[in-house]
Design a protein around this nucleic acid. Structure first.
Lengths: 340, 340
DNA sequence: AAAATGTCTGGGAGCGCTCCCAGTATAGCA
DNA sequence: TGCTATACTGGGAGCGCTCCCAGACATTTT
């Protein structure tokens, strides 16, 4: 399939009048080759269009210079933002800097097992970045058991040795809710994410923490579970409207936009009657009516940092579980009522 | 790094009391192995936790069972929709069905060359899917020259032998514009995409075709070039407002949303004063105010079809340039004025 | 002066598989 | 009964590299 006229090391060696070993040294930039030889070899390499054969390399040496990226496909449908592109972008930039290749696995539900054997155990990957916020992901305990180096994007609450990168969901949510309090809101409801995702759980915790810290009681009737989709936010808001809240914190922007829709249909105004705050600072947030106050998370950085941690693990420069928590930032627009 | 206690074929063979060849036959589901032996080997394979070594396999055989996905990073920033996730999703599903692995390359601008050598020529990839709508992509002529099988997502106008998948941009745009005409609009402007992307060019052609087919003259002052971003759409619309159009066709939804913003700032109403139609049916389209009439394109299918074409090429079942044009569909919402 | 160090080069061994060919046993047919 | 077709099984060769060790030579040290 691929051009079979690709020359091998041996052929280059012959053409340059040196040995296989010397050519290998040259193309790998190793020392102990005279300048004259080095130059001659490079010339022949260019002329003959030599490209090292990846499989041969990783069979002989042990390095594949490849990292895996695992995305459970179910997650994909939940984050229907440019979330993935941006995370991948971050990983890609880090990988490129280290001359690493990226192997992408979008794992269909209930096929983790098959996939695991085919891809992860084939020694094709030096390490893995998992984009997953599912709490019950089966892959994580497995990778951990099999000693395959990996970093998860999204905190892992149950296995303490897991290396992960996450944003400070709790603090971000807390900031958002306290902002609403400062603006005089009293009955602050929340639309949560799915409870099998850390992001969902942690943002709810942030909402609760804000209430407690400010002497409010946590009123369970002001909590409605959503699923990170617009439709879910809409339904959750309809339910919450019966509790007559004067503000709502949605665990992501898409649900906040669904909430806006429900509020308008009930003929209430935002922010006059109900203030709305989202999470993510997705593109839509800036263009909704009114523009959404939201908690921005550094998605690109999340990907980049995950890859960087993985490289540190691969270089063996560290033993301890590695983790990074990136900061979030409150972006104030019109929907919370502080800008009219 | 990866568990080095992974057994090899030879070790399995010894443990099962058979030869290397027999084990190879068993794990590859080849015929000519007695049921008793087959079963015994499988048992030992499971017990010892054998997993074939990918690099060894592809060095010995010639198949890597891996396809590459190339995304010029610049494109990524232009399509800031879930576009990529969905395309990847489509490719992933097709790849999974064929037990193929996916190799992801997000190529930074001006690094095509380096990347090309490292990844594409290393015989790691059996074929490549290119997600690229840039007309001047340097990779395409190169792959073509080097005889590496590939399929491009997005029509390629200059090299006739290129295999590609695209949506019917021209017809989609034409439908949208004719829809506006049927609603009585007379001065229909357009905000184009970048002119170095086929999607941009073809959608503009569709707008022109609709005008011509219906006896209008093509008024160049009703054309403003955008860049597929919200901000670009906003600026283009501001410019177009001076021509007093009664409708505008934007080459994607994000620009349409930017146009809405410009129109509101000029204190005009949509659709009463100006009707707006977008392209893509991105998620935002349904939630803008008013909801956007738009041309839906089957993004998931685009990815899936590209992979399927590639597999057909790899199987050698075809010689001729392979291409597929997928249909678009007009989604009517409020912004065009036919639903009030 | 000989010995010790350092620089450069070549070739053997082997990574873990697949492919091919040569066997051996069993069945099928004259 | 022989002889050929057929089902299995084993082992050599080799994919294109990297790693390691040994040798040739130049340079420094005692």
């Amino acid at each position: 399939m691929t051009p079979s006229n690709t020359p091998t090391l041996e052929q280059i060696a012959k053409a340059a009048g040196v040995s296989r070993s010397t050519v290998s040294r040259v193309i790998n930039d190793e020392p102990n080759v005279s300048d004259a030889v080095r130059e001659r070899v490079w010339r022949v390499v260019k002329e003959m269009g030599y490209h090292p054969h990846a499989a041969a390399r990783s069979l002989a040496g042990r390095r594949t210079k490849t990292l895996g990226i695992v995305i459970p496909q179910a997650v994909n449908t939940v984050f229907s933002d440019p979330y993935f592109s941006r995370v991948l972008h971050g990983i890609a930039d880090a990988a490129n800097e280290q001359q690493y290749h990226m192997f992408l696995a979008m794992v269909p539900p209930h096929q983790e097992d098959d996939f695991y054997r085919r891809s992860l155990r084939s020694q094709m990957l030096e390490g893995v970045v998992i984009i997953s916020a599912f709490l019950d992901d089966a892959l994580i305990p497995r990778l951990h058991r099999d000693d395959i180096p990996f970093v998860v994007i999204g905190r892992h609450p149950t296995i303490p040795e897991v290396n992960y990168v996450d944003v400070d969901n709790l603090h971000g949510a807390l900031m958002a809710v306290e902002h609403l309090m400062r603006l005089g809101r009293r009955r602050i409801a929340t639309i949560t994410g799915p409870m099998n995702m850390v992001a969902g759980v942690d943002r709810l915790e942030g909402w609760k923490a804000a209430l407690r810290r400010n002497g409010h009681v946590v009123d369970e009737t002001l909590i409605a579970e959503g699923d990170f989709t617009e439709a879910g936010g809409y339904l959750a808001m309809q339910q919450l409207l019966q509790q007559k809240p004067d503000a709502v914190f949605a665990a992501n922007d898409l649900m906040a936009i669904g909430a806006l829709r429900a509020i308008y249909e009930a003929e209430l105004r935002v922010p006059a009657d109900i203030a709305v705050v989202g999470f993510d600072d997705a593109q839509v947030a800036a263009y909704s009516t009114p523009p959404l106050t939201t908690v921005r998370q550094p998605i690109y950085k999340l990907g980049r940092t995950a890859a960087e941690l993985l490289f540190r693990i691969l270089e063996g420069r560290t033993q301890a579980p590695l983790r990074a928590i990136l900061p979030t930032e409150l972006v104030i627009r019109a929907s919370c009522g502080s800008v009219m």
